[in-house]
Design a binder for these strands. Structure first.
Lengths: 192, 192
DNA sequence: CTGAAAAGCGGAACGTCGCTCCATTTAGTA
DNA sequence: TACTAAATGGAGCGACGTTCCGCTTTTCAG
């Protein structure tokens, strides 16, 4: 009788190798062509068939989250750190939003993907928000409690707002997301 | 001589009829399926072939601008009117942004289309901005001159910022674009 | 070491999309 | 009525996402 007791199976060596290769290829293609780049292109660059691609990343969102997971994690961990280190909670919030913005604008097209509801990206959206929303909420409530900020905005709205403001083409020098985000933050401040 | 009052080349009757039918069909489909709805679907609803569609509207942007031209025009004309009528230039700006927001959020997916650079929408983007940017600029500088507003933002940035903030799904009650826009406007105000 | 089962692989194939092209139809005119 | 140019529609093309399954490679019990 076959050994079926084993719940945890280690991946086959070639499969693990292909996954790494795909991840690397995707990261390159994302930079040059954006997160909407054709699957075929990513698979070709990795030197594998599209079937293999789908085996490893059933949805595009799976791929994107895998590629950016480290950076999302770094952003999540920066929240408490900044709160402890910054002079005021508002400063912490501002610095965190800064980092968050960096993440969004340096990744070509990520912000666009984030706001899309074409069910393809629903999972990405969910992962992203689930991970970062509590972090942002902690910063926001800390700033409110300190009296620095007075707003009806939820952390989720703030994050999505910032995300949306980052959507502008980076090629367009006439549109600077950071400037708008700075105005938005100014609008958050409590009078006086 | 036949009824030839018209200045020049008048369209053939059937062509004019089809154009109207297509416009009506597109307006309906836009509401139910968004501005990204397949061309085939619009053509089918109008009871014409896709070739006919492309004859009348070579690009999707041509269609969208045709559908919404009236409302864009109304928005453009409201600028000077509001400036004359409102108590302060800032009020005029706020009311104008309000109307602008109405336009964006009531049209399913329009905001999304506006920020896209997939050359398909470049023309739409251009038309839209060319028409409204000067209007917004007039309001903004009036508010700055009056001392109500102090900002480094250009009118273009403000418009695109507002447009981007409108991108959230209207189905999501947790995201209210208007709230964010209100915060953004608050951030525009000159201190005291 | 060996050989068969399991895991993984590749890419042909299918359905959908935007868009083009042109043989056919039809409105306007003389 | 007959003729011409405008207008039509849908077959067809290339690109895309995604699925499916016959083949290859890895693994490991014997």
């Amino acid at each position: 009788m076959p050994t079926e007791q084993e719940p945890a199976r280690t991946k086959r060596a070639d499969a693990a190798r292909n996954e790494k290769t795909l991840l690397a290829a995707a990261a390159e293609v994302f930079v040059s062509d954006g997160v909407d780049a054709p699957i075929r292109q990513i698979a070709a660059r990795a030197g594998v068939g599209v079937g293999t691609f789908y085996r490893h990343f059933p949805t595009r969102a799976d791929l994107i989250t895998a590629v950016y997971r480290h950076q999302i994690e770094a952003c999540a961990e920066a929240g408490p750190t900044l709160l402890a280190a910054a002079e005021t909670p508002f400063d912490a919030l501002r610095q965190w939003i800064d980092q968050f913005t960096d993440f969004l604008v340096t990744k070509h097209g990520l912000a666009d993907a984030l706001q899309s509801d074409s069910s393809t990206f629903a999972a990405l959206h969910t992962y992203f928000l689930d991970r970062l929303e509590p972090v942002c909420a902690a910063l926001l409530t800390a700033a409110i409690d300190a009296g620095d900020v007075q707003t009806e905005l939820s952390a989720l709205e703030l994050m999505r707002g910032v995300g949306n403001l980052c959507i502008g083409r980076e090629a367009d020098s006439r549109y600077d997301p950071r400037r708008l985000i700075s105005v938005l933050l100014k609008g958050l401040r409590a009078p006086l």
